[in-house]
Design a binder for these strands. Structure first.
Length: 946
RNA sequence: AGUCAUGUAGCUCAGUAGGUAGAGCACUCGACCGAUAAUCGAGAUGUCGUAGGUUCGAUCCCUACCGUGACUACCA
């Protein structure tokens, strides 16, 4: 008897599953793209479009990816893809940083594990092992990046160890050699005794360290002021081993000092009653306490400037350190601690070096590369400051005991303070005078050029500009030499007799040629004559054996990637890295490029923050708060991780953890179901169904207006790299405007109207548009899901991948501000009706809103807005009456909408068995339990719903 | 140690020429049972980091402090 009308209703139909199964689906899509050769097709199809070159900052090729890599590469990918869809030719070439200490260190460890000393391994063999190690990790990381959905030229990435790259890096060094920017300088650098190399700033970490803290007496032999005669200046240091290198004392010219006569000392004190010492007034108390002085008398007060020009003798002058020790003014002298006098050893400190240089002090070579005093150093020759393992050597103790013997040691204790350490071996470092190669910040106005370049670069967020500028303003010359094995050789020759750097382009050309053919190895494998040619006698030249700082490698990527590849462009449109790269890649690239090409290698720089755990603190394995990208992808899918990237504000630190990932999964489901609804309701859609915009109901035209606005927002936020705003807007559009409003209203027409209904056809026309726009807008973010949806509906003529599309144009005629305004009022009315129905529901008078037929009292404005609209349709009721009149007091109102009121009522009639509306005309036609519309729909149905 | 950021509902984020705050999600309750491990609706939720100050009034301005992060320095 009862007909099952379900078969006559046009219910959504699609193979696009509600449950995504991303961990399984994503690899299938990756395989599909591989078959399609998607990246090549993108390049081919976008040939001639304006280029967008996001130049990849190379990750270091060791170890699996961590979440920071994932953030970085996903953000790059979203930008690269969205620029592509904005109509650019967005060609992304990933790269890797291959040389340098971390890899070298790993290989050394392997040798150590085998009981071998790496110094015994032939350098070419060693370098080859490093190369293979890097190659192995490049393959692994490449896989892991691709699994995240990152699209790019993975078939032909760049690496800093490619022969071509090594050759170009050599050419870049040669440019600095030829233009005079490169020079050999003797200066103290932070030196690792363990790794036997100078370290770059970026390779230094500061850790707490216990050092001896000593007070040392420097007797005045020639006071600049009579008040100094016969007294001794007291210095304080935490590095006793630098005392042999002492050449001066610094005093704060503006500080107050006092000459005291010691009256009372405790039993442990090394000071004699009657000693006369000069110290800073402000530090008198603390210094006296440290030296065990319990009573003293002021002899004289002095200003620092009165002391400048005095001369002391070295505390070990009787033991072979017989040079004078002049007192200079130093603006770095503070009264935080110590004595207000700083002992100056020009070989062992930055301040010391500069002060010494200003006063023509000698910069003696005191300590060799393994941290032992040179043979020429009296008393201490051969003693170690630090052992080869980084432990404290005998030097400090020896110096202190000799000082003590000379009655120069006035106090000693242990002090824990922050001290530089190697990032790699974690061993303490020392300042050591060495011969190193530098790029001058002054020659060729490098600093000025760099500063100008910064002001001409777009920074996102803008604070980055200030940050980079202040770094460039104050940084010293760039020390580019490393006494290591795994890197690009600094390919230069020095004339043995004159010390002159050989500047001959022909020589450099031969070197680059060799590197291009055989890599940097050829520098070590070939006789110097191969490069010097016939014009020079190899015997007369020293071949430099240093390698170049890896920051110079990566700082040159713009040369061997952007300039070298025909399908790229110099300068890059964008560099994008974590904010730590202000002192890293952004910095080195800028200097390298300004020094050789006079401008930055990038038009814009974007920085992102770091990934923190959910509690806002650093991720920590031991606390279990670290998130592995591999595990996340395997359990949830890369698209979830990609949502996380765009839903976070990358200009600050980002948080990530289980709860946040769950949140992203929820957001994902909403988007996925929106796509599924579109697909299900577009089943069988054909072009012939389309309804022209002018014939569409207002509701459809309102959706088109919203599409127009979303399009503008998507494009704007893409240009501004504001993906968080974009994602939020997209999600709200799907959740609030489509799902909760438009779809909800139109389900009735889509399911129940007859196939030829203009209303239904118009809705399907709009759903088709929504599908087109949404898949495009989502494609840069949800690269997998957007593709899955696209392919679910692709017919023969459609393009093979959503990623071969661009954001579709939106006709300007879709914009209709007046309509949008009108519909603001309509939606407001709907809110009130919904509120009224909720009461009815709570009172159990209705369940479904289709049981209701409310009377709505409106003001003139709202009445005008509702002209021509069907109240019941919009409110999803079965009926309703609009009355422009004052409502009865009993009517339902919302507190914030005074002009509207609703008097609920039950709809009259029977429930239609097909559309479930309660209507008076149910049973009026051939079908006893069906309304007139549905009867017509059933009769007119042409087997569409099977 | 210093500098600079940052601290708004459980989560991601908005916001306020200074008048005690919002959106989505999550949560709870309800409806539907033809987007169904969906969909719709309603609701509660916050001393706007802490303590002072300026002000009639501060989440928004000032100061200090605390937490977190990044950077810089290393200082003898």
């Amino acid at each position: 008897m009862a007909i099952d009308y379900k078969d006559t209703v046009f219910l959504p139909k699609t193979d696009f599953p509600m449950r995504a199964g991303l961990p399984k689906k994503e690899p299938e899509l990756l395989a599909y793209w591989a078959d399609l050769e998607l990246f090549s097709r993108q390049r081919a199809e976008s040939a001639g479009r304006p280029p967008f070159v996001l130049h990849d900052g190379p990750p270091y090729a060791n170890g699996h990816l961590h979440i920071g890599h994932a953030l970085n590469k996903i953000l790059k990918d979203v930008i690269s893809r969205s620029q592509q869809m904005m109509g650019k030719d967005s060609n992304y070439v990933p790269g890797w940083d291959c040389h340098g200490l971390p890899i070298e260190w790993k290989i050394e460890e392997q040798y150590r594990a085998d009981g071998q000393n790496k110094d015994d391994v032939p350098i070419l063999e060693f370098r080859n092992e490093c190369r293979e190690f890097a190659a192995k990790w490049i393959d692994i990381q490449s896989e892991e990046f691709q699994r995240l959905g990152v699209i790019g030229n993975w078939h032909d990435p760049y690496t800093t160890m490619a022969y071509g790259a090594e050759a170009q890096i050599a050419r870049e060094i040669a440019k600095f050699a030829m233009n005079g920017g490169l020079y050999r300088g003797a200066r103290p650098v932070l030196w690792s005794v363990v790794e036997k190399t100078a370290l770059a700033d970026a390779e230094v970490e500061y850790e707490d360290h216990v050092s001896p803290s000593i007070y040392v007496r420097f007797p005045v032999v020639s006071g600049a002021d009579r008040a100094l005669d016969g007294a001794a200046i007291v210095i304080w240091t935490t590095t006793p081993w630098t005392i042999p290198g002492n050449r001066a004392i610094a005093v704060g010219a503006e500080l107050d000092y006092v000459r005291i006569r010691v009256e009372v000392v405790n039993e442990k004190s090394r000071v004699q009653v009657g000693d006369e010492l000069v110290i800073a007034k402000a530090l008198r108390e603390s210094a006296c306490q440290e030296m065990g002085i319990e009573g003293s008398e002021d002899v004289a007060l002095l200003r620092g400037e009165d002391i400048v020009g005095s001369v002391c003798v070295h505390p070990l002058h009787a033991k072979g350190f017989d040079h004078e020790v002049p007192v200079f003014a130093g603006d770095f002298v503070t009264i935080d601690q110590g004595t207000g006098f700083v002992h100056i050893a020009p070989s062992h400190g930055e301040d010391d070096f500069h002060l010494g240089r200003a006063h023509d002090l000698s910069v003696p070579d005191m300590v060799n590369e393994v941290g032992c005093y040179f043979e020429h150093v009296p008393l201490f020759a051969g003693m170690a400051v630090l052992t080869p393992d980084g432990d404290e050597g005998e030097a400090n103790g020896a110096v202190m005991s000799v000082l003590e013997g000379e009655n120069a040691l006035l106090g000693r204790r242990r002090l824990e303070h922050s001290y530089p350490h190697s990032w790699r071996s974690k061993a303490p470092l020392i300042f050591r005078n060495t011969s190193q190669w530098f790029i001058s910040m002054k020659t060729n106005d490098l600093r000025d050029k760099a500063l100008t370049a910064i002001s001409e670069t777009r920074f996102v967020p803008s604070q980055g500009q200030t940050r980079l500028r202040s770094m460039i303003e104050t940084r010293p010359d760039w020390c580019i030499s490393r006494q290591r094995a795994w890197g690009v050789p600094i390919p230069i020759f020095v004339h043995k007799q004159t010390g002159e750097l050989l500047r001959d382009q022909a020589v450099f050309d031969r070197i680059a040629e060799a590197f291009a053919a055989e890599g940097g190895d050829s520098w070590f494998a070939s006789p110097p004559s191969r490069f010097l040619g016939n014009d020079y006698d190899a015997e007369e030249y020293e071949q430099v054996r240093d390698i170049v700082d890896v920051w110079f490698d990566s700082g040159s990527t713009h040369a061997f990637v952007l300039e070298d590849r025909d399908d790229l462009q110099w300068p890059a449109s964008l560099y994008l890295e974590g904010s730590d790269q202000h002192r890293g890649w952004f910095h080195s690239s800028l200097l390298e490029s300004c020094g050789t090409r006079g401008r930055a290698p990038y038009d814009a720089v974007l920085t992102h923050g770091f990934v923190m755990a959910e509690d806002g603190r650093k991720m920590s394995k031991s606390r279990g708060t670290d998130v592995s990208p591999q595990e996340t992808v395997e359990s949830l899918g890369a698209d979830i991780l990609r949502i996380w990237v765009v839903s976070s504000d990358y200009s600050e630190d980002l948080r990530l953890g289980p709860e946040i990932l769950k949140h992203q999964s929820d957001l994902y489901r909403r988007i996925r179901n929106t796509l599924r609804f579109l697909l299900g309701n577009l089943d069988g859609f054909e072009d012939s169904e389309r309804v022209p915009v002018v014939e569409m109901p207002e509701l459809e035209r309102w959706v088109l207006h919203r599409i127009h606005a979303m399009d503008a927002l998507v494009r704007q936020t893409t240009d501004d790299f504001e993906f968080h705003t974009q994602w939020t807007a997209l999600h709200n559009f799907c959740a609030v405007e489509l799902s909760a409003f438009y779809f909800d209203i139109r389900k009735d027409a889509l399911y129940c109207d007859s196939v030829d209904s203009v209303r239904r056809r118009a809705a399907r026309t709009v759903l088709d548009a929504l599908f087109s726009y949404l898949t495009a807008w989502l494609a840069p973010i949800l690269c997998f899901t957007a593709e899955e949806a696209w392919l679910a509906r692709r017919s023969g003529s459609d393009v093979d991948s959503v990623h071969l599309r661009t954001f579709p144009d939106v006709p300007n005629t879709w914009r209709d501000d007046a309509l949008a305004n009108k519909w603001e009022k309509v939606r407001n009315l709907r809110r009130v009706v919904t509120g009224a129905l909720e009461i009815e529901r709570a009172e159990k008078r209705i369940g479904s809103s289709l049981q209701a037929a409310p009377t709505v009292y409106v003001d003139g404005e709202t009445a005008a807005a509702m002209t021509g609209l069907d109240l019941a349709e919009i409110c999803i009721t079965s009926g309703g009456t609009l009355v422009e009149a004052a409502p009865p007091d009993s009517a339902f109102r919302l507190s914030d909408v005074e002009a509207l009121a609703v008097e609920p009522a039950l709809a009259e009639g029977e429930k239609c068995a097909r559309c479930w509306q309660v209507l008076p005309d149910v049973g009026a036609s051939d079908y006893p339990d069906v309304c007139g519309r549905c009867a017509a729909a059933i009769n007119g149905r042409q087997g569409s719903a099977d």
